[in-house]
Design a protein around this nucleic acid. Structure first.
Lengths: 312, 312
DNA sequence: AGAATAGTGTCTATAAGACACTATCGT
DNA sequence: ACGATAGTGTCTTATAGACACTATTCT
């Protein structure tokens, strides 16, 4: 194993604790920064949006980047740091915002630590995935130069050279855009390797709403089946059959629970009122809501390999 | 956002680059250590084993822990560090070991960074999951005091207080043991939060062999369907129907490819020779090999919540 | 010979998708 | 009145699992 101790993981070593304490001075090591970045997703006007902030300093000055910041050493864990950053960035920490934030879903996405990902120093970033229903516009009191929701279809998610495939969760199509259909005229490029992080996050969401009731996290407490369908359509970027979707959702035990009520008005373009539901207590969807089987992209090569092989 | 810059993620700030360089001294910050821990799994005599090392220094001296070590700042990425640690720990870096290591699968599992997880300092550990076919005994030339494969059924994986649930991948039964049936007389407790890390790793493997051809990574290049079934049975801890399993595996396109040959001898306890296969080129199993539907553990409460809610 | 296993055939219950149809609402 | 939508019914096909059966090999 590594000759250098400390930390969980490194195991033995000839040193007793005293010897170790004497020999080890953390400040003598080349420092590594630990940050937390958040891929915050929400649904606005029927399409997926991600929260971005504009960098006010080099490198990548003027570029858009994922919100994030330092892990406060000794003071907080990773989950707390992610929640804090998101609250600060959206300016939603104050009262009155609980309605939106209390339904926030936060989960760890993956960690990115290639030495070259930041020109200044070796930065290890723990990425988090967050989604919540229709979050308001940010800036409500933040110190960020600019923070805004961007449609993910406006972003350039094409894999850049230097970004190696990462391995987490289900590999899926990493071909950017697609969620909304139209990629804007001049796709926005993200700073650092944030395009890859966002791409991994999107893959994760697309896969996860298949077998978890997570899609309900994009909606307010009460919602209708057509609204839930709109979430799936926005995330997967595909139209779903309304009738079959409706029956399928109701057939999964614990996915949704009827409130007994209906909406006040029918759809915007007509139609009867829809019944309202709220999320059930299932943590796993059984059976799952499988994505429509796009034809296999021929056996040439999968999108992302999801395999790391050691080189001796 | 955080007032303190640097790093990808943190975005703006009033500072120009010069100001930033002047204001920021990494050595002035409370240091955070970044380590890489590896959950290395293999199959030995039909049951799942995990690689552990015995700690030779406090804290947790004498306890078993996951192999791991420092990330070398500025020199290596996380994936490389994990591969390096594993090679060092197993003593398999030399020649002659490629046969085993070239089939190694390595993927990131998750990152653990609660400040209290190590009494000495704030340590952020990036955990990796590794598996490979029937790895040999370690110690072949390592500096570890003791490293050995342990049946996972001998370990105490009950959630300890202070370990908060983490959120990655599919939640599954986190009730330890079970894989082998018999939990040993005195279950081994792991150092730090390594029981939770291992538990998360097991959950990940159990879920992932459902929809990925990963189970073949536990086997040599050529294998038989009954051997593949043994992998599933060991990982899931359940007997599977031999006939149905056989047909199902062959029905998934790209999962296995026939070599045309058979084994030299029949089974140890009789039976005809089995045909041999090797892994196909599918990266995703379509349709998936779903786990047998254990009855829902009643709607009292899911095993692990997989939800983190921000506290305003 | 007897026991255990590899592999196949068959039947049933369930789930997914295509399609048609009715009822309700907005314009 | 008309168009769009919510929700249900029905039919076809694919899949999962239970079970039976044959053939092959070890002891």
């Amino acid at each position: 194993m590594a000759a250098d101790e400390p930390s969980p993981g490194p195991t033995t070593g000839p040193a007793t604790e005293q010897e170790w304490l004497a020999a080890y001075d953390p400040r003598a090591y080349t420092p590594i920064a630990v940050t937390v970045d958040v891929v915050a997703l929400t649904l606005r006007r029927g399409s997926l949006h991600v929260l971005l902030v504009e960098r006010g300093a080099p490198p990548h000055q003027g570029c858009w980047a994922l919100p994030g910041g330092f892990l406060r050493a000794g003071e907080e864990g990773l989950d707390e740091a992610a929640a804090r950053e998101l609250a600060e960035e959206t300016g939603l920490q104050g009262s009155g915002a609980e309605a939106a934030l209390c339904r926030l879903h936060l989960e760890q996405l993956g960690t990115y630590g290639v030495p070259e990902r930041d020109p200044r120093m070796h930065v290890v970033s723990v990425a988090y995935l967050a989604f919540a229903p229709n979050l308001p516009d940010p800036r409500a009191g933040t110190d960020a130069a600019a923070a805004a929701w961007h449609p993910v279809s406006d972003l350039d998610l094409a894999p850049r050279s230097g970004d190696r495939p990462r391995a987490t969760g289900v590999p899926a199509d990493t071909h950017g855009g697609g969620v909304d259909g139209h990629t804007g005229p001049h796709p926005i490029r993200l700073a650092f390797d944030h395009a890859r992080i966002l791409s991994d996050g999107l893959d994760r969401v697309r896969a996860k709403i298949e077998y978890s009731p997570l899609a309900t996290a994009f909606l307010p407490y009460d919602f209708t089946i057509p609204e839930l369908r709109a979430v799936y359509e926005a995330v997967w970027g595909e139209k779903l059959h309304p009738g079959n979707f409706h029956r399928k959702v109701l057939s999964v035990p614990g996915f949704v629970e009827s409130t007994g009520g209906t909406t006040e008005r029918g759809g915007a373009r007509g139609g009867p009122r829809a019944r309202t539901y709220h999320a059930g207590d299932a943590r796993l969807l059984h059976p799952a809501l499988l994505r429509p089987t796009r034809e296999e992209p021929e056996p040439g090569e999968g999108p992302s390999t999801d395999r790391t092989t050691i080189r001796p």
